[in-house]
Design a protein around this nucleic acid. Structure first.
Lengths: 196, 196
DNA sequence: ATCAAAAGAATGAATGTTCATTCCTGTCGT
DNA sequence: ACGACAGGAATGAACATTCATTCTTTTGAT
Protein backbone atom coordinates (compact mmCIF):
# COMPACT_ATOMS: atom_id res chain seq x y z
CA UNK A 1 0.00 0.00 0.00
CA UNK A 2 2.87 2.33 0.62
CA UNK A 3 4.13 3.65 -2.67
CA UNK A 4 7.54 5.19 -2.71
CA UNK A 5 5.96 8.55 -3.36
CA UNK A 6 3.84 8.45 -0.24
CA UNK A 7 6.77 7.27 1.74
CA UNK A 8 8.83 10.23 0.71
CA UNK A 9 6.06 12.66 1.39
CA UNK A 10 4.76 11.55 4.72
CA UNK A 11 7.24 9.55 6.67
CA UNK A 12 10.93 9.27 6.60
CA UNK A 13 11.04 10.33 10.20
CA UNK A 14 14.78 10.20 9.91
CA UNK A 15 14.68 13.14 7.54
CA UNK A 16 12.23 15.03 9.69
CA UNK A 17 14.47 14.54 12.69
CA UNK A 18 17.49 15.77 10.79
CA UNK A 19 15.71 18.84 9.50
CA UNK A 20 14.34 19.69 12.91
CA UNK A 21 17.74 19.23 14.47
CA UNK A 22 19.28 21.56 11.93
CA UNK A 23 16.78 24.26 12.59
CA UNK A 24 16.87 24.03 16.36
CA UNK A 25 20.61 23.73 16.70
CA UNK A 26 21.32 26.60 14.37
CA UNK A 27 19.01 28.83 16.36
CA UNK A 28 19.61 27.69 19.92
CA UNK A 29 23.09 26.23 19.87
CA UNK A 30 24.17 22.70 20.55
CA UNK A 31 23.96 22.79 24.29
CA UNK A 32 20.70 24.58 24.66
CA UNK A 33 18.83 22.04 22.58
CA UNK A 34 17.72 18.96 24.50
CA UNK A 35 16.78 15.81 22.67
CA UNK A 36 13.32 16.12 24.17
CA UNK A 37 12.82 19.39 22.36
CA UNK A 38 14.02 17.98 19.08
CA UNK A 39 11.57 15.12 19.54
CA UNK A 40 8.72 17.44 20.30
CA UNK A 41 9.36 19.78 17.38
CA UNK A 42 9.82 16.86 15.03
CA UNK A 43 6.48 15.45 16.15
CA UNK A 44 8.11 12.29 17.36
CA UNK A 45 8.67 10.63 20.70
CA UNK A 46 11.98 10.95 22.45
CA UNK A 47 12.68 7.25 22.18
CA UNK A 48 12.04 7.27 18.46
CA UNK A 49 15.09 9.37 17.75
CA UNK A 50 17.18 6.53 19.14
CA UNK A 51 15.77 4.14 16.57
CA UNK A 52 17.53 6.20 13.92
CA UNK A 53 20.60 7.54 15.69
CA UNK A 54 22.79 5.98 18.33
CA UNK A 55 23.03 9.12 20.38
CA UNK A 56 23.09 12.86 20.21
CA UNK A 57 26.66 13.06 19.01
CA UNK A 58 25.99 10.68 16.14
CA UNK A 59 22.92 12.63 15.16
CA UNK A 60 24.87 15.86 15.06
CA UNK A 61 27.80 14.41 13.18
CA UNK A 62 25.61 12.74 10.56
CA UNK A 63 23.79 15.98 10.03
CA UNK A 64 27.07 17.79 9.72
CA UNK A 65 28.39 15.45 7.06
CA UNK A 66 25.12 15.56 5.12
CA UNK A 67 25.30 19.33 5.05
CA UNK A 68 28.94 19.47 4.07
CA UNK A 69 28.18 17.16 1.18
CA UNK A 70 25.25 19.25 0.04
CA UNK A 71 27.26 22.43 0.39
CA UNK A 72 30.14 21.18 -1.72
CA UNK A 73 27.69 19.86 -4.28
CA UNK A 74 26.33 23.38 -4.68
CA UNK A 75 29.81 24.82 -4.83
CA UNK A 76 30.56 22.68 -7.87
CA UNK A 77 27.32 23.45 -9.67
CA UNK A 78 27.53 24.51 -13.30
CA UNK A 79 31.24 23.88 -13.49
CA UNK A 80 32.03 22.57 -16.96
CA UNK A 81 35.15 20.66 -17.89
CA UNK A 82 35.75 23.19 -20.64
CA UNK A 83 35.83 26.16 -18.27
CA UNK A 84 39.09 27.95 -17.78
CA UNK A 85 40.53 27.91 -14.30
CA UNK A 86 39.52 31.53 -13.87
CA UNK A 87 35.94 30.75 -14.85
CA UNK A 88 35.86 27.83 -12.46
CA UNK A 89 37.25 29.93 -9.64
CA UNK A 90 34.70 32.67 -10.16
CA UNK A 91 31.81 30.22 -10.37
CA UNK A 92 32.83 28.41 -7.23
CA UNK A 93 33.19 31.71 -5.38
CA UNK A 94 29.68 32.77 -6.38
CA UNK A 95 28.25 29.33 -5.76
CA UNK A 96 29.57 29.32 -2.21
CA UNK A 97 28.26 32.79 -1.60
CA UNK A 98 24.86 31.97 -2.99
CA UNK A 99 24.60 28.78 -0.97
CA UNK A 100 25.45 30.47 2.32
CA UNK A 101 23.15 33.39 1.76
CA UNK A 102 20.23 31.12 0.93
CA UNK A 103 20.99 28.52 3.62
CA UNK A 104 21.48 30.45 6.81
CA UNK A 105 20.61 27.59 9.15
CA UNK A 106 23.00 25.29 7.37
CA UNK A 107 25.77 27.85 7.57
CA UNK A 108 25.25 28.57 11.23
CA UNK A 109 25.11 24.93 12.12
CA UNK A 110 28.23 24.05 10.19
CA UNK A 111 30.10 27.00 11.63
CA UNK A 112 29.11 26.03 15.14
CA UNK A 113 30.19 22.49 14.53
CA UNK A 114 33.49 23.72 13.19
CA UNK A 115 34.78 24.76 16.58
CA UNK A 116 33.14 22.31 18.88
CA UNK A 117 34.21 19.15 20.66
CA UNK A 118 32.12 17.11 18.22
CA UNK A 119 34.85 17.41 15.60
CA UNK A 120 36.19 13.89 15.93
CA UNK A 121 38.88 12.30 13.84
CA UNK A 122 36.55 10.33 11.56
CA UNK A 123 34.51 13.39 10.79
CA UNK A 124 37.58 15.38 9.88
CA UNK A 125 38.83 12.62 7.63
CA UNK A 126 35.47 12.35 5.87
CA UNK A 127 35.43 16.08 5.24
CA UNK A 128 38.98 16.02 3.95
CA UNK A 129 37.92 13.58 1.24
CA UNK A 130 35.08 15.76 0.10
CA UNK A 131 37.49 18.52 -0.74
CA UNK A 132 39.29 16.38 -3.30
CA UNK A 133 37.70 18.09 -6.33
CA UNK A 134 38.98 21.43 -5.11
CA UNK A 135 42.44 20.13 -4.44
CA UNK A 136 42.41 18.82 -7.96
CA UNK A 137 41.24 22.07 -9.48
CA UNK A 138 44.01 23.83 -7.59
CA UNK A 139 46.70 21.40 -8.73
CA UNK A 140 45.68 21.81 -12.36
CA UNK A 141 45.57 25.58 -12.03
CA UNK A 142 49.03 25.77 -10.55
CA UNK A 143 50.43 23.41 -13.16
CA UNK A 144 49.21 25.51 -16.09
CA UNK A 145 50.12 28.80 -14.46
CA UNK A 146 46.58 30.01 -13.84
CA UNK A 147 47.19 30.13 -10.11
CA UNK A 148 50.17 31.65 -8.40
CA UNK A 149 52.57 29.27 -6.76
CA UNK A 150 51.15 29.72 -3.32
CA UNK A 151 50.26 27.01 -0.83
CA UNK A 152 46.73 25.80 -1.44
CA UNK A 153 45.86 26.66 2.13
CA UNK A 154 46.64 30.26 1.33
CA UNK A 155 44.58 30.31 -1.82
CA UNK A 156 41.65 28.77 0.00
CA UNK A 157 41.47 31.77 2.31
CA UNK A 158 40.27 33.87 -0.61
CA UNK A 159 37.69 31.44 -1.91
CA UNK A 160 36.43 30.09 1.38
CA UNK A 161 36.95 32.34 4.39
CA UNK A 162 36.47 35.57 2.49
CA UNK A 163 33.23 34.31 0.97
CA UNK A 164 32.00 33.14 4.32
CA UNK A 165 32.78 36.50 5.85
CA UNK A 166 30.81 38.31 3.17
CA UNK A 167 27.88 35.95 3.53
CA UNK A 168 27.77 36.48 7.28
CA UNK A 169 27.76 40.22 6.93
CA UNK A 170 25.05 40.06 4.31
CA UNK A 171 22.89 37.83 6.48
CA UNK A 172 23.37 39.96 9.58
CA UNK A 173 22.26 42.99 7.58
CA UNK A 174 25.54 44.80 8.15
CA UNK A 175 26.39 44.76 4.46
CA UNK A 176 24.26 44.70 1.36
CA UNK A 177 26.10 42.95 -1.42
CA UNK A 178 25.01 44.58 -4.63
CA UNK A 179 25.98 43.05 -7.95
CA UNK A 180 28.79 45.60 -8.20
CA UNK A 181 30.18 44.85 -4.75
CA UNK A 182 29.95 41.15 -5.42
CA UNK A 183 31.86 41.51 -8.66
CA UNK A 184 34.48 43.61 -6.89
CA UNK A 185 34.88 41.00 -4.18
CA UNK A 186 35.25 38.20 -6.72
CA UNK A 187 37.80 40.25 -8.60
CA UNK A 188 39.83 40.94 -5.47
CA UNK A 189 39.96 37.25 -4.67
CA UNK A 190 40.93 36.35 -8.20
CA UNK A 191 43.66 38.98 -8.24
CA UNK A 192 44.92 37.55 -4.98
CA UNK A 193 45.46 34.07 -6.36
CA UNK A 194 45.86 34.33 -10.14
CA UNK A 195 49.15 33.58 -11.86
CA UNK A 196 51.39 36.36 -13.11
CA UNK B 1 53.18 40.27 57.16
CA UNK B 2 51.52 40.49 53.79
CA UNK B 3 53.27 42.88 51.48
CA UNK B 4 51.43 44.07 48.41
CA UNK B 5 53.87 42.16 46.28
CA UNK B 6 53.02 38.85 47.88
CA UNK B 7 49.37 39.68 47.56
CA UNK B 8 49.61 40.19 43.84
CA UNK B 9 51.62 37.07 43.35
CA UNK B 10 49.64 34.65 45.42
CA UNK B 11 46.05 35.76 45.56
CA UNK B 12 43.72 37.54 43.25
CA UNK B 13 41.61 34.45 42.94
CA UNK B 14 39.44 36.30 40.53
CA UNK B 15 42.29 36.41 38.06
CA UNK B 16 43.16 32.78 38.64
CA UNK B 17 39.56 31.81 37.99
CA UNK B 18 39.47 33.82 34.78
CA UNK B 19 42.72 32.35 33.49
CA UNK B 20 41.63 28.83 34.31
CA UNK B 21 38.31 29.38 32.63
CA UNK B 22 40.02 30.64 29.50
CA UNK B 23 42.25 27.63 29.28
CA UNK B 24 39.57 25.04 29.97
CA UNK B 25 36.90 26.55 27.78
CA UNK B 26 39.22 27.01 24.83
CA UNK B 27 40.23 23.36 25.03
CA UNK B 28 37.00 21.66 26.02
CA UNK B 29 34.28 23.97 24.80
CA UNK B 30 31.68 25.85 26.79
CA UNK B 31 29.42 22.98 27.55
CA UNK B 32 31.93 20.36 28.28
CA UNK B 33 33.35 22.42 31.10
CA UNK B 34 31.49 22.19 34.42
CA UNK B 35 31.99 24.83 37.04
CA UNK B 36 33.26 22.10 39.34
CA UNK B 37 36.14 21.46 36.98
CA UNK B 38 36.99 25.13 36.73
CA UNK B 39 37.03 25.29 40.51
CA UNK B 40 39.23 22.25 40.81
CA UNK B 41 41.76 23.42 38.23
CA UNK B 42 41.83 26.88 39.71
CA UNK B 43 42.58 25.41 43.12
CA UNK B 44 39.47 26.92 44.59
CA UNK B 45 36.23 25.64 46.03
CA UNK B 46 33.18 25.57 43.83
CA UNK B 47 31.36 28.10 45.93
CA UNK B 48 34.23 30.54 45.75
CA UNK B 49 33.64 31.21 42.09
CA UNK B 50 30.26 32.61 43.04
CA UNK B 51 31.85 35.17 45.31
CA UNK B 52 33.36 36.74 42.21
CA UNK B 53 30.83 36.01 39.48
CA UNK B 54 27.07 35.84 39.60
CA UNK B 55 26.87 32.72 37.49
CA UNK B 56 28.51 30.85 34.65
CA UNK B 57 27.18 33.12 31.96
CA UNK B 58 28.50 36.22 33.69
CA UNK B 59 31.87 34.60 34.15
CA UNK B 60 32.08 33.76 30.47
CA UNK B 61 30.91 37.14 29.31
CA UNK B 62 33.31 39.03 31.56
CA UNK B 63 36.15 36.92 30.30
CA UNK B 64 35.07 37.56 26.74
CA UNK B 65 35.04 41.31 27.17
CA UNK B 66 38.40 41.29 28.94
CA UNK B 67 39.93 39.41 26.06
CA UNK B 68 38.38 41.57 23.39
CA UNK B 69 39.80 44.61 25.12
CA UNK B 70 43.24 43.08 25.35
CA UNK B 71 43.09 41.97 21.74
CA UNK B 72 42.16 45.40 20.41
CA UNK B 73 44.84 46.96 22.58
CA UNK B 74 47.41 44.79 20.85
CA UNK B 75 45.94 45.56 17.46
CA UNK B 76 46.60 49.26 18.04
CA UNK B 77 50.13 48.80 19.33
CA UNK B 78 52.85 50.98 17.82
CA UNK B 79 50.38 53.00 15.82
CA UNK B 80 51.64 56.58 15.71
CA UNK B 81 49.53 59.62 14.89
CA UNK B 82 52.02 60.50 12.16
CA UNK B 83 51.64 57.20 10.34
CA UNK B 84 50.04 57.24 6.94
CA UNK B 85 46.83 55.32 6.57
CA UNK B 86 48.69 52.64 4.67
CA UNK B 87 51.24 52.28 7.45
CA UNK B 88 48.49 52.06 10.02
CA UNK B 89 46.64 49.46 8.02
CA UNK B 90 49.71 47.30 7.62
CA UNK B 91 50.62 47.57 11.28
CA UNK B 92 47.16 46.65 12.45
CA UNK B 93 47.08 43.70 10.08
CA UNK B 94 50.37 42.37 11.46
CA UNK B 95 49.43 43.16 15.04
CA UNK B 96 46.25 41.13 14.74
CA UNK B 97 48.10 38.27 13.18
CA UNK B 98 50.79 38.29 15.81
CA UNK B 99 48.29 38.43 18.62
CA UNK B 100 46.28 35.47 17.35
CA UNK B 101 49.31 33.35 16.65
CA UNK B 102 50.71 33.95 20.11
CA UNK B 103 47.38 33.69 21.93
CA UNK B 104 45.76 30.52 20.71
CA UNK B 105 43.55 29.98 23.75
CA UNK B 106 42.29 33.52 23.57
CA UNK B 107 41.52 33.16 19.89
CA UNK B 108 39.70 29.88 20.28
CA UNK B 109 37.67 31.16 23.18
CA UNK B 110 36.66 34.35 21.46
CA UNK B 111 35.77 32.49 18.28
CA UNK B 112 33.65 30.04 20.21
CA UNK B 113 31.92 32.86 21.97
CA UNK B 114 31.27 34.55 18.68
CA UNK B 115 28.64 32.07 17.60
CA UNK B 116 27.10 31.03 20.85
CA UNK B 117 23.96 31.95 22.73
CA UNK B 118 26.04 33.90 25.23
CA UNK B 119 26.20 36.77 22.76
CA UNK B 120 23.68 38.97 24.49
CA UNK B 121 22.71 42.48 23.57
CA UNK B 122 24.85 44.20 26.20
CA UNK B 123 27.93 42.28 25.19
CA UNK B 124 27.45 43.16 21.55
CA UNK B 125 27.01 46.80 22.41
CA UNK B 126 30.14 46.82 24.53
CA UNK B 127 32.15 45.26 21.74
CA UNK B 128 30.77 47.73 19.24
CA UNK B 129 32.20 50.58 21.29
CA UNK B 130 35.63 49.04 21.39
CA UNK B 131 35.83 49.20 17.64
CA UNK B 132 35.52 52.96 17.60
CA UNK B 133 39.22 53.59 16.91
CA UNK B 134 39.03 51.43 13.81
CA UNK B 135 35.88 53.07 12.59
CA UNK B 136 37.68 56.36 12.99
CA UNK B 137 40.78 55.21 11.14
CA UNK B 138 38.52 54.06 8.34
CA UNK B 139 36.61 57.30 8.16
CA UNK B 140 39.81 59.33 7.94
CA UNK B 141 41.22 57.02 5.30
CA UNK B 142 38.17 57.27 3.11
CA UNK B 143 38.04 61.05 3.49
CA UNK B 144 41.62 61.54 2.31
CA UNK B 145 41.36 58.95 -0.45
CA UNK B 146 43.64 56.36 1.10
CA UNK B 147 40.84 53.84 1.23
CA UNK B 148 38.49 53.01 -1.58
CA UNK B 149 34.92 54.09 -1.18
CA UNK B 150 33.71 50.73 0.00
CA UNK B 151 31.47 50.01 2.96
CA UNK B 152 33.59 49.63 6.09
CA UNK B 153 32.11 46.19 6.61
CA UNK B 154 33.66 45.16 3.33
CA UNK B 155 37.06 46.59 4.13
CA UNK B 156 37.03 44.86 7.50
CA UNK B 157 36.87 41.47 5.80
CA UNK B 158 40.42 42.00 4.58
CA UNK B 159 41.87 43.17 7.86
CA UNK B 160 39.92 40.96 10.19
CA UNK B 161 38.55 37.76 8.69
CA UNK B 162 41.46 37.22 6.35
CA UNK B 163 43.96 37.64 9.15
CA UNK B 164 42.01 35.31 11.38
CA UNK B 165 41.91 32.70 8.64
CA UNK B 166 45.67 32.86 8.20
CA UNK B 167 46.28 32.65 11.93
CA UNK B 168 44.07 29.59 12.23
CA UNK B 169 45.88 27.81 9.42
CA UNK B 170 49.22 28.68 10.91
CA UNK B 171 48.20 27.39 14.33
CA UNK B 172 46.74 24.18 12.95
CA UNK B 173 50.02 23.56 11.15
CA UNK B 174 48.35 23.53 7.76
CA UNK B 175 50.24 26.60 6.63
CA UNK B 176 53.60 28.02 7.56
CA UNK B 177 53.57 31.78 7.19
CA UNK B 178 57.07 32.79 6.20
CA UNK B 179 58.02 36.44 6.12
CA UNK B 180 57.51 36.43 2.38
CA UNK B 181 54.04 34.90 2.55
CA UNK B 182 53.08 37.27 5.31
CA UNK B 183 54.18 40.26 3.25
CA UNK B 184 52.25 38.91 0.28
CA UNK B 185 49.13 38.51 2.35
CA UNK B 186 49.40 42.02 3.75
CA UNK B 187 49.93 43.37 0.26
CA UNK B 188 46.89 41.55 -1.08
CA UNK B 189 44.71 43.01 1.66
CA UNK B 190 46.08 46.48 1.11
CA UNK B 191 45.50 46.25 -2.65
CA UNK B 192 41.96 45.14 -1.90
CA UNK B 193 41.08 48.25 0.09
CA UNK B 194 43.43 51.06 -0.99
CA UNK B 195 42.24 54.09 -2.89
CA UNK B 196 42.80 54.43 -6.62
C1' DA C 1 51.90 45.11 71.65
C1' DT C 2 48.09 42.06 72.74
C1' DC C 3 43.96 39.87 72.18
C1' DA C 4 39.00 39.41 71.77
C1' DA C 5 35.47 40.26 68.68
C1' DA C 6 33.66 41.45 64.19
C1' DA C 7 34.00 41.23 59.25
C1' DG C 8 35.22 39.05 55.30
C1' DA C 9 36.49 35.07 52.51
C1' DA C 10 36.43 30.35 51.44
C1' DT C 11 34.73 25.79 51.78
C1' DG C 12 32.29 21.68 50.04
C1' DA C 13 28.38 18.88 50.99
C1' DA C 14 23.56 19.20 49.80
C1' DT C 15 19.84 20.62 46.65
C1' DG C 16 17.02 20.73 42.83
C1' DT C 17 16.97 20.63 38.03
C1' DT C 18 17.98 19.35 33.50
C1' DC C 19 19.02 16.26 30.46
C1' DA C 20 20.46 11.89 27.49
C1' DT C 21 19.24 7.47 27.33
C1' DT C 22 16.59 3.19 28.38
C1' DC C 23 12.83 0.16 28.53
C1' DC C 24 8.39 -1.37 29.02
C1' DT C 25 3.88 -0.90 26.37
C1' DG C 26 1.00 -0.23 22.82
C1' DT C 27 -0.12 -0.13 17.75
C1' DC C 28 -0.51 -1.40 13.08
C1' DG C 29 0.34 -3.78 8.84
C1' DT C 30 0.50 -8.29 7.22
C1' DA D 1 -0.59 -13.70 16.01
C1' DC D 2 3.75 -11.73 14.85
C1' DG D 3 7.20 -8.40 14.46
C1' DA D 4 8.73 -3.93 13.40
C1' DC D 5 7.94 0.51 14.74
C1' DA D 6 6.60 4.22 17.84
C1' DG D 7 5.35 6.12 22.20
C1' DG D 8 6.57 8.35 26.49
C1' DA D 9 7.20 7.55 31.39
C1' DA D 10 11.08 6.24 34.19
C1' DT D 11 16.00 6.28 35.26
C1' DG D 12 20.14 7.97 36.74
C1' DA D 13 24.08 10.79 35.89
C1' DA D 14 25.77 15.42 35.47
C1' DC D 15 25.51 19.87 36.63
C1' DA D 16 24.84 24.88 38.36
C1' DT D 17 23.98 26.93 42.36
C1' DT D 18 23.14 27.52 47.50
C1' DC D 19 24.21 27.85 52.26
C1' DA D 20 25.55 26.55 56.86
C1' DT D 21 29.90 26.31 58.62
C1' DT D 22 34.93 27.08 59.16
C1' DC D 23 38.99 29.66 58.53
C1' DT D 24 41.47 34.14 58.04
C1' DT D 25 42.13 38.92 58.43
C1' DT D 26 41.17 43.36 60.32
C1' DT D 27 39.89 46.39 64.00
C1' DG D 28 40.19 48.75 68.21
C1' DA D 29 40.25 48.85 73.22
C1' DT D 30 43.49 48.38 76.76
Amino acid sequence: MTTSIEQDKVTDKRTVILQTTLQLLSERGFHNTPMSLIAEEAGVAAGTIYRYFDNKETLINELFLDLKREMLQHAMARIEPGDTTEEQFRKVWRNFFHYYVTHEDEMRFVEQHHNSPFQSGDVLAAVEEMYAPFANMFAVGVADGSFRELPMEMTSVYIYDVVLAFAKRQLSGKLKMTDELLEEAVQISWDAVKGT
